[in-house]
Design a protein around this nucleic acid. Structure first.
Length: 254
DNA sequence: AACGGGTCCAACCGCCGTGGA
DNA sequence: GTCCACGGCGGTTGGACCCGT
C-alpha cells in the first residue's frame, strides 16, 4: 500500500499558476514567511496543496531567482559538477546562485547531456584516429621514402590532444575553487581531516594557518603538466574522499 | 494553412530522510 | 524504539511552442 497523499486533493486546483495566485503567494510569504508549507495555502486562501506552493515559490517566485539563458560558465559548471556528483541536482544548484535544481535538471536533459555525449563520441573518434595514425607511423618507419600523407590528420590529433588537456586543466581549476569554497563554508572536525588522507591533512595545515587565503597543494597547471594516468586516478580518489566526507556523494562510478 | 513530430519547461508524483511526539 | 508529519529531492509527465513538410 502506498503512502497517503501529502494533502487532501479534492477541490484543490492543479496545473499552471495564474498571475493572481502568484501574487497571493508572494504577498503571504513576504508577510508571514513559509515556516509551514502544509498550512500555508489554507492561511493564504489558495486552493493549492502545500507542496505545489513550495515548488512554485522555490522554482519560480523566489526573489533571488536568476532568469534567462545559462552562461557558458554556468553550463561548464553544471557539466563538471555532474561528472563529480551525478544527478544530485540540489547539490549542483547550491553551487549556482540563482539557479534552481529543477532548472538545472531541465537544462541538463535538454542541452548539456547531448553535448557531453557528443563530446564523448568525438573523444572516442579522436582516440581511434590517434591509434590508427600511430599504426600508420609504425608502417611508415619501415619505409622512409614514402610521403607522409597522414600529416594533417596527425597535426589535428595532436591539437585535439592539447585541447583535451586544456579542458582537463579547466576542470581541475574549477575543482580547486570548489574545494576552496567547501573549506571556507564548512567546518571539518579533526577526525574528518584525518580520515580524508594525507592530501587533505596538507590542506588542513594551510587552512589552519590562513583561513581566508587557502592554497591547495594540488596546483592545477603544474600538477597536470606532470600528470600521468595514475596521477589522475589519485586525484579522483582524493575527490571521492572529499565528497564522501562532505556527505554529498554516495557513489562514484569511475 | 494544416499537420505531425520534436523540443522545452513548469508542474506533479512518489520516495526518502529527519525531527518531534 | 516507533510512528507520523513534513520538507526535500529526483524522476516523470503534460501541454505549449517550434519547425519542417
Amino acid at each position: 500500500m502506498g503512502r497517503a497523499p501529502c494533502c487532501e486533493k479534492v477541490g484543490l486546483k492543479r496545473g499552471p499558476w495564474s498571475f493572481e495566485e502568484d501574487q497571493i503567494l508572494i504577498k503571504f510569504i513576504q508577510l508571514n514567511g513559509h515556516s509551514n508549507w502544509r498550512a500555508l495555502p489554507k492561511k493564504a486562501g489558495l486552493l493549492r496543496c502545500g507542496k505545489s506552493c513550495r515548488l512554485r515559490w522555490t522554482n519560480y517566485l523566489r526573489p533571488d531567482i536568476k532568469r534567462g539563458d545559462f552562461t557558458q560558465e554556468e553550463a561548464q559548471t553544471i557539466i563538471t559538477l555532474h561528472q563529480l556528483m551525478g544527478n544530485r541536482w540540489a547539490a549542483i544548484a547550491a553551487r549556482l546562485p540563482g539557479r534552481t535544481d529543477n532548472e538545472i535538471k531541465n537544462v541538463w536533459h535538454t542541452h548539456l547531456k547531448k553535448r557531453v555525449i557528443q563530446n564523448e563520441i568525438l573523444k572516442d573518434q579522436t582516440k581511434q584516429n590517434k591509434n590508427d595514425d600511430n599504426h600508420f607511423h609504425d608502417q611508415l618507419s619501415c619505409s622512409s621514402e614514402i610521403k607522409l600523407d597522414g600529416e594533417e590528420d596527425i597535426d589535428r590529433c595532436i591539437k585535439n590532444n592539447n585541447d583535451d588537456k586544456d579542458a582537463e586543466l579547466a576542470e581541475l581549476a574549477f575543482a580547486e575553487d570548489f574545494l576552496k569554497s567547501l573549506l571556507l563554508e564548512e567546518e571539518f572536525s579533526e577526525n574528518d581531516w584525518n580520515n580524508l588522507g594525507k592530501d587533505c591533512v596538507m590542506i588542513k595545515d594551510v587552512v589552519d594557518e590562513s583561513p581566508k587565503e587557502v592554497e591547495i597543494p594540488l596546483s592545477g597547471e603544474e600538477e597536470m603538466s606532470n600528470c600521468s594516468s595514475s596521477d589522475t586516478v589519485d586525484i579522483m580518489d582524493f575527490w571521492r574522499n572529499v565528497f564522501m566526507k562532505d556527505g554529498e556523494l554516495q557513489e562514484i562510478n569511475i
